[in-house]
């Protein structure tokens, strides 16, 4: 049987995911860890891991070229991929928040000003304000979103907050929470049915590993 392909988001979340697979006996061999190979086999041959850009994980899984993947809820909600989402893996916890310069009014600005919101997460921001019936202008920014309110490009920002340090350094404070995010296991709908036994076994194993008390994981350190 061909190995199951798992798309992983390059970066810290990938290390945490590989640690989790290690706990079910299917991690990668240490010498594989720092190679630049595009496909990493698991020690036991059951899996092949595909390290990809986080925002590409839903794309690979939705198209079925990967059986499953690990991705943050923030990425998933932004992409709105049509995939199964059976498990909250717990690590990679952070929150999507609205932040404003200290003293900036929220949720209403004085006068007839339409609030401008800078963000990388256009879809999540649009949905959040729409659900509240708030009319805002959303400005798409690719990086260093904290800069936007400092320069007067926007009144508020919507961004991922882990420790809040970057915000603080730029004189910004969290004024609202959009949603709490963490890593999710996502599964292709077709592959789940075509290899049902393999998929159900993986789900059960991961669920058991998550329920068992963790020994030392990087998520406990952060």
């Amino acid at each position: 049987m061909a190995p199951m392909r798992i798309a992983l988001p390059k970066g810290r979340m990938m290390d945490q995911a590989l640690e989790l697979w290690d706990r079910i006996g299917s991690g990668i061999a240490p010498e594989q860890a720092n190679t630049r190979r595009l496909i990493l086999p698991s020690r036991d041959g059951r899996f092949e891991f595909l390290p990809v850009k986080p925002s590409d994980v839903p794309t690979y899984v939705e198209a079925g070229v990967a059986d499953a993947g690990v991705v943050g809820l923030d990425v998933l909600l932004e992409r709105r991929a049509d995939v199964l989402q059976p498990l909250d893996l717990g690590f990679g916890a952070c929150r999507m928040a609205v932040a404003a310069p200290e003293g900036q009014p929220y949720p209403d600005l004085p006068g007839a000003v339409t609030p401008r919101v800078a963000t990388k997460y256009v879809e999540s921001a649009r949905r959040f304000f729409a659900e509240r019936g708030a009319q805002v202008e959303i400005i798409r920014i690719a990086g260093s979103v904290e800069l936007a309110p400092l320069l007067g490009l926007s009144h508020w920002i919507v961004d991922l907050v882990e420790t809040g340090r970057t915000l603080k350094e730029n004189g910004l404070v969290v004024v609202d929470t959009v949603f709490a995010s963490s890593a999710r296991l996502i599964v292709n709908r077709a592959r789940h049915k075509l290899r049902l036994d393999d998929h159900q076994r993986l789900l059960a194993e991961l669920e058991a590993a998550l329920a068992a008390p963790a020994l030392t994981t990087s998520s406990a350190r952060s």
């Binding site: 079925g64 070229v65 709908r189 077709a190 049915k193 075509l194």
Partner: peptide, 11 residues
Amino acid sequence: FEVFAAGAGRA
């Protein structure tokens, strides 16, 4: 029901 086939990522 939905129909899934090997080689197609969705129903």
